[in-house]
């Protein structure tokens, strides 16, 4: 039995009377809709938060008017505006690929949510290859970005898409290797069991394992994940000041909104992976805090990492393309290999 299915079964006992396929389909679709709602809410909140953080770090106020208190309704107004904007497809564009690109980017992001463990019971699909699955699904985004950039038939878009492709595929290697360091110890790829293996207090979390080796792995993962989701200092694919938006220059209306949603969903996903693998997932740091439910810890830890991503945006300047490649292939990759070898040595000796 899937933990999620049991979770819904406890809430609504009558689903156990339904035929199995119907019950699983209904539970699955309801979960997707719930998570879609979460993604949309998170994106709205994160957009507001990012604008406020950016503003305050630059000694401005940011949105203050819409909705009264500190402009909290600004992202809602923006979303409605995007919904009623005219949808323009450039005349020379490859129409099929142009329409397909946002679907792929957003679906890949949403599919990543399938294996995130919110608590002991609430995990949509507890795959035994969970971590590998989430890595492979999130790399689908590259195809979407490349498709969108190429299909637009715009020079800015093409440059942005090419940069996105070379950046995202390069940084996949350090991401995968840094996570591998933890799997070697835990001996499982299931997101749920990875967290259960960290039970105890804060010192049992993987980030403090084999000190300081996994801490360095965590750092490598965090840096590389910034590049995976195109955040500053690795935001070359969309660098506003040089590429006027990069791969999504030609997109407007809801198609643009879905690129944006997918981007924010990915920010949350990489933070959630870091939380699951390194920071103890839904577990409380101390036994005494166990009364606070798991999902609050999980979202809280992930949101902290999202905050750090926004903070870094106003702290670090954008890298050059060659510096980007240097960081990936000459710094992060050799270091993550070294960590894997050191942890392996530590364990066999």
């Amino acid at each position: 039995m899937e933990p999620l299915f049991q979770f819904f079964n406890n809430l609504f006992p009558f689903i156990s009377d339904w035929p199995e396929w119907l019950a699983h389909t209904v539970v699955g679709v309801v979960t997707v809709l719930l998570l879609f709602g979460f993604v949309a809410l998170f994106a709205l909140f994160a957009i507001w938060l990012e604008r406020k953080i950016s503003a305050h770090m630059q000694d401005r106020l940011g949105p203050m008017e819409v909705g009264g208190w500190h402009g909290w309704a600004q992202p809602i107004a923006d979303a409605i505006k995007l919904l009623v904007k005219e949808d323009i497809i450039p005349a020379m564009a490859d129409r099929t690929l142009f329409k397909l690109a946002p679907v792929i980017v957003f679906t890949a992001a949403l599919a990543g949510f399938a294996v995130l463990p919110w608590s002991q019971d609430f995990i949509p699909a507890d795959l035994n290859v969970g971590l590998l699955y989430i890595l492979s699904v999130s790399s689908f985004a590259v195809i979407g970005l490349l498709m969108g950039g190429w299909a637009s038939n715009n020079k800015w878009s093409l440059y942005g898409a090419m940069r996105a492709a070379s950046q995202m595929i390069s940084y996949e290697i350090p991401v995968a290797l840094a996570l591998l360091a933890v799997i070697m110890n835990a001996g499982t790829m299931s997101m749920r069991h990875l967290v259960i293996a960290q039970s105890g207090n804060i010192l049992d979390w993987n980030v403090f394992n084999f000190f300081p080796l996994t801490a360095v792995a965590f750092f490598i993962y965090f840096v590389a994940s910034l590049a995976e989701v195109n955040r500053t200092p690795f935001d070359l694919p969309e660098g506003e000041s040089e590429l006027v938006g990069g791969f999504h220059t030609e997109y407007s209306s809801m198609r643009f909104a879905f690129f944006f949603l997918g981007e924010y969903a990915n920010m949350y996903i990489v933070s959630a992976i870091a939380t699951t693998v390194f920071l103890g997932g839904w577990l409380a740091p101390f036994e005494a805090l166990n009364f606070i439910p798991g999902p609050i810890w999980f979202v809280g830890k992930a949101m902290t990492l999202v905050f750090i991503q926004m903070w870094l945006r106003w702290t670090l300047p954008r890298l050059r393309v060659d510096q980007l490649m240097y960081t990936c292939w000459k710094v992060l990759t050799p270091f993550s290999f070294a960590i894997i070898l050191l942890i392996g040595l530590w364990k066999v000796l």
Binding site: E2, L4, H24, T25, G28, V29, T31, V32, L33, F36, F106, T107, L110, A111, F113, A114, V115, P124, A125, D126, L127, Y133
Partner: peptide, 12 residues
């Protein structure tokens, strides 16, 4: 679990 993943992709 993989059926749930399929539902995620289709519904998304």
């Amino acid at each position: 679990g993989f059926y749930t993943v399929l539902l995620f992709i289709l519904t998304g």
